[in-house]
Nucleic acid binder design. Structure first.
Lengths: 195, 195
DNA sequence: TTGAAATTCAACACTATGTCCATAAAAATA
DNA sequence: TATTTTTATGGACATAGTGTTGAATTTCAA
């Protein structure tokens, strides 16, 4: 009987080292420009060992992405339960957006890389889907095409804002940034204009 | 006396062929994953000839980018003269935004590639700087950090919207899309809500 | 038509790839 | 602790792209 084999310490270390190496290298270049050799040299892992676990650098990246989404999903689940009663199908709540930004801050280096242009996967969309972002108010009078444009606008604006926030060291509090995002999303820039 | 040597037809053809090959390949993959060899095979140009004109694939891309910015800049110059009197330092005008989108539509394949994630250069920022985007109204009461966040949000939202518009075949008219962008920028999503 | 310029072609050393196998090291288990 | 299983290492291999070179060829402009 082999009751769910525990993960070998060596495997755990190998994966951890390669993960950290990838995040470090992706701070400076796009995933498709990163060689398996450079990854292994930085991680001090034999190149043969790499191929024992991953197909290529994309495979490694995707596995990291999957893990992040899973972890974040679990964190959001509890928060969303609380707000589901109020907004069964409404715009994203301040609580959920704040929770996402708090998670991003706690894993800043990783989050920066995954949101950056050095990441080829459509990771951003996944995050926002996870957050059940419904940008448009339910009683809108516009058609589907317009709505899609507006969602695209809002999601990408928020992601770019988050990336800038991370790049500059997350000076503001997550709740503050979440507040800014939602205000921009719903009321635009003129809501910041001096009366 | 060599009075501005005319460009050799052969050189012109070589550059054109390589340009088109790059745009085609970049529809499917990131610039850093494109090999010089594949470029030359698609363009049916000898690899030695490539190196006669460009250092690598990035060099080729940057030259294209420079050319596009120059051409667009000239087109915007005339439009901006007209609006400069009204908004010496205000938000981007509907005319300028429309002009940008018209140019993008006329060069859709190229524009899609340059705005996509397959392009590593910060091409988007350059375009918006060229358009002298001032997102915030001049009499705003917020500080510099907030203003920067808001500009980032707006620019990236607009670019993502434009990219989607291009990807789907530029069904709407440029003026229509420009109108949508400015409304989102200034008044947010709630301005689309049914009264 | 002729000289100049651009392109082609073959060859070069160099580097990364993905795979393989034998060996060594470490972990899990009896 | 001793043994077995698993994992990591190191070397070798053919393959493919890189950037450069020099000679031959083609095309252009005048």
């Amino acid at each position: 009987m082999t009751p769910q084999r525990k993960t070998d310490r060596r495997v755990a270390y190998t994966k951890l080292a390669l993960r950290e190496a990838l995040v470090e290298l992706m701070q400076g270049q796009h995933i498709s420009g990163i060689t398996v050799k450079s990854l292994c040299e930085l991680a001090d892992i034999n190149r043969s060992t790499f191929y024992l676990h991953y197909r290529d650098q994309y495979d490694l990246l995707h596995q990291i992405e999957r893990e992040v989404l899973e972890t974040l999903g679990e964190r959001l689940a509890s928060k969303q339960d609380a707000t589901d009663e109020m907004f069964s199908k409404g715009p994203i709540s301040l609580e959920v957006m704040t929770e996402i930004l708090e998670y991003a801050r706690e894993n800043a280096a990783l989050a920066r890389v995954l949101l950056s242009e050095n990441c080829d996967f459509a990771f951003q969309q996944d995050i926002m889907e996870l957050a059940q972002v419904v940008v448009i108010l339910p009683d809108s009078s516009i058609n589907q095409r317009m709505e899609d444009y507006i969602v695209t606008y809002g999601i990408n604006g928020c992601i770019a804002l988050a990336e800038k926030w991370l790049d500059e060291g997350t000076i503001e509090e997550p709740a503050q940034v979440a507040q800014l995002m939602l205000q921009l999303l719903y009321f635009g820039t003129t809501s910041f204009t001096k009366g």
